[in-house]
Design a protein around this nucleic acid. Structure first.
Lengths: 342, 342
DNA sequence: CTGTTAGCGCGTTCAA
DNA sequence: TTGAACGCGCTAACAG
């Protein structure tokens, strides 16, 4: 007796269906493959036979034959980050509509794990890859094998593939200006590792504005780097800043994790905005409202995902033009709507 | 000339490697399959040849041959919900460690889409399925084909598979008691559709306590149902409750979405807790702290995911015992740590 | 321990 | 339009 399964049903093949429908296996294949035409009543007979037998085409056999799959690999640093979660959701929506499945690959910003997943993607082989590349990402293997790749959030090394990004430098600058306009004058910055493109670009935008306003280089003591992935790192960095002899009166946090951590630290010190100003680059998951003293830049997360997915589908379809880089706008006002952005 | 791809590299097969290493294809297969033993130096030769040629085993061929895959289908209502996101993350961690990949399937509580995905899973065929079943979920197809299934968050129809759930009734009751203990006395409940097991169980726990405290049935006007998936629905329901001639002084929100929406509504009315009490069943993404007047039940999200994944791996390995149902405890205090729960 | 052989289920030639 | 035959790349038998 078997529990849990009603039975290890024998695989029903096109041969079974063919016999039952009184046609050749090739005809069955054509009915389900949908390429070459089949007479209507023969097709109907095949459909009927297939339904009676509970036939489901075996994708592995098809893939082996055609050496293609309908799987898109989505490789992101951390699916537990709302930004990547929403990004993935958007990709999945577009992919599903086009008949593709999404394989989820968490890299945790770990190059080894990323390499491992790229190997899996290569041996799958997947139809395409959407990836947020890390510091030393090597796309060579995928490209050699002709697997299309689209990068999201960050550019690939040497810009060898399509990419969908936002204008980090400019929007970081704009957000920083807002802090000055709100009357803050001692600005600090908590950004990510110097191996990550966005953390450098955001710091760059910040520093440019500080220089232009103060006429001097930003104080190095007011610029901290923390890991992008853990709230706790942002919290620690913010606490460290506020413990300085001459602490900042506003903090630029370069991603949502860091902003969340910073808010935690400020809350613990009883210095929530507007007591201390804050830029949250990318919306933190504050449910209710944005308190005064907080400047939030809203990333067009959903758009990034759908754009990337469409670009990838174009590449899968064979589009052969030079790498494209799409830069999407960053909003400084809550775009409202259904949490479409982050 | 080709852009984007360095070339549609010819597939390197075990035959190529075999020739280069001076062994038989079967030996190459054994080196990569890892079942039968191979002499050390022969294995080394194979590895070397494979590396030089850039050989990557073709999974589709292997799967066709073995009619097995290393893919787990994760079918959840909405990956953009933090609960399911964290759940998925946990599953992915365990799966990856065991050499499996995770295929992401958003059902949006839509039976049609669920059915569609179950078909895909059947034709893949996937090694196993982890699913949050909806109202009319039909697992028949998967079970007939012998694909192991583990349900999470909700039981399957007729409890035909393993399941990992929490004790919704009891913890809903406990949370409701807290509201009374805090001095609230006019309690309302916003729960999900009556087609969803958890929304009924949570309402049940709520109602039991109301009955035992007031000695009467809960006022039907104070019990609302809203969709589980959108914050906006919770917001609307809460607004409706507060517009009653005799509005409640506390609201039991049966999931994190509904709690978020309720908080939004209360904020808009200037009635944030503790002015109006709130139970959030499942933690809402409040970054900073839990205000007084809010009772949060923290679901052991990560545990649910890892437990389910391990149970599925056991089933995939062939474990053949009656369906198990694991009920995990719900915490009423912030378990702290790294957002492991929700 | 290793090589030889025969398919896994399907898509795709080629003739008819 | 349809059917027969071949092979995608690999692993599971078997024989050595």
């Amino acid at each position: 007796m078997h529990f849990l399964t009603y039975g290890k049903g024998q695989m029903v093949t096109i041969y079974d269906v063919a016999k039952r429908a009184g046609v050749s296996p090739a005809t069955v294949s054509r009915v389900f493959g949908g390429q070459t035409p089949v007479t209507a009543n023969r097709a109907a007979a095949v459909q009927a036979a297939a339904a009676e037998l509970g036939f489901v085409p075996n994708r592995n056999a098809r893939r082996l034959r055609t050496s293609s799959s309908e799987i898109i690999a989505m490789m992101v640093p951390d699916i537990a980050n709302p930004f990547y979660m929403l990004l993935t959701r958007a990709v999945e929506d577009v992919a599903r509509a086009a008949g593709y499945s999404v394989m989820l690959c968490n890299t945790d910003e770990d190059p080894a794990r990323e390499q491992e997943y790229l190997r899996v993607a290569a041996s799958e082989p997947v139809a395409g890859i959407i990836i947020t590349p890390g510091a030393g990402t090597d796309l060579g293997w995928a490209l050699t094998r002709g697997v299309p790749v689209v990068c999201v959030d960050r550019h690939p090394p040497r810009r060898v593939t399509d990419a969908v990004v936002v204008d980090n430098t400019e929007s970081a600058a704009a957000a920083t200006r807002r802090l000055y306009e709100a009357g803050y004058h001692q600005l600090a910055c908590i950004t990510g590792p110097d191996t990550i493109e966005t953390s450098n670009a955001r710091l760059g935008g910040f520093a440019t504005v500080v220089r232009s306003v103060t006429g001097a280089e930003p104080d190095p003591a007011l610029i901290l780097r923390a890991r992008y992935v853990l709230d706790a790192d942002g919290e620690r960095a913010a606490a460290q800043l506020m413990a300085l002899p001459d602490p900042p009166d506003a903090i630029f946090a370069a991603n949502n994790r860091l902003a969340t951590g910073t808010l935690r630290a400020l809350h613990r010190l009883g210095l929530l905005p507007p007591a201390v100003g804050l830029v949250s680059f990318g919306g933190p998951p504050s449910v209710l409202f944005t308190p005064p003293g907080v400047v939030v830049t809203y990333l067009p997360t959903r758009d990034i995902g759908t754009t990337a997915a469409h670009m990838l589908l174009e590449r899968i379809a064979g589009l052969d033009i030079p790498p494209r880089s799409v830069t999407l706008p960053v909003a400084m006002e809550d775009p409202a709507g259904d949490n479409q952005q982050w």
